[in-house]
């Protein structure tokens, strides 16, 4: 799967968690722009893990702050 496909999929997965309809770009931050709390993060990560059949450990999550970094990380895991 290439980056564009991963980007597309994660964009659709994020929708139910993007309560305020924030415009998503590579630089969009989860904690700041999207105001994700720890529970939302868990549900959102679980949705991605299930979609791509991967594990994103909390250690890996700590390195991911923006939407673009998430897409990069998942792309790396699935390719």
């Amino acid at each position: 799967m290439d980056r564009a496909e991963v980007n597309e999929k994660i964009r659709s997965l994020i929708e139910p968690f993007n309560k305020k309809g924030v415009a998503i770009a590579d630089g969009t931050t989860f904690a700041g722009d999207l105001e994700f709390d720890s529970l939302t993060v868990m549900d959102f990560v679980a949705a991605i893990e299930d979609e791509f059949d991967i594990i994103i450990s909390m250690n890996q999550q700590a390195e991911i702050e923006t939407f673009g970094q998430l897409v990069d990380a998942v792309t790396k895991m699935v390719s």
Partner: peptide, 16 residues
């Protein structure tokens, strides 16, 4: 590596 799952959710645990 730390991998949490939803409270008391057996299926979520198994998937991980």
């Amino acid at each position: 590596e730390i991998v949490p799952f939803k409270h008391n959710d057996i299926e979520a645990m198994e998937k991980r």
